[in-house]
Simulated assay, not measured.
Amino acid sequence: MTIASTDRLLIRDWTDGPADLAQVFDIYSRDEVMRWLGGGSGLLTDPAQAAERVQAWRNRYAPYAGRYGLWAIETRDAGQAVGSVLLKPLPGRDGVTPTDDIEVGWHLHPDSQGHGYATEAARAVIEREFATGTSQIYAVVMAGNEPSMAVARRLGMTHVGVRTEWYGGEELETFVLRQPA
Rank of each mutant, 00 (worst) to 15 (best):
A150R: 12
L70K: 14
W166I: 06
A65T: 06
A22T: 04
L44G: 07
P47L: 15
G169F: 05
L10P: 02
Y117S: 01
R76P: 02
V162T: 08
V151S: 01
R178C: 14
P147M: 03
Y68P: 03
I3H: 11
A81Q: 03
W71D: 02
A65D: 12
R60G: 07
A152T: 03
E146M: 07
A181E: 10
V162L: 12
G83R: 10
E170P: 01
L90V: 04
V24Y: 02
S5V: 04
A51N: 02
R178V: 10
D100C: 15
G79D: 04
L10Q: 11
T45D: 07
V176S: 14
E127P: 05
D16N: 09
T119G: 01
L70S: 14
G161R: 08
V162K: 11
S135A: 15
G105W: 00
P98E: 12
R93E: 06
R30T: 05
D26G: 06
T6F: 13
E52D: 12
R154P: 01
L44R: 06
P147I: 02
E120W: 01
H159G: 04
G168R: 13
Q23H: 09
R12A: 09
L9W: 00
V141M: 02
L9S: 04
D46W: 03
P63W: 12
G133L: 15
W71T: 03
T45I: 06
E52W: 09
L87F: 13
E127A: 15
A56F: 08
F130I: 07
V33K: 09
L177T: 07
I27M: 08
V24Q: 10
I27S: 08
L155G: 05
E74C: 13
D26H: 09
V54Q: 05
Q136W: 11
P98M: 14
S84Q: 06
V24S: 08
A121I: 02
A152Y: 06
D111L: 10
G69Y: 12
E129N: 15
A50R: 03
S29A: 07
R93C: 11
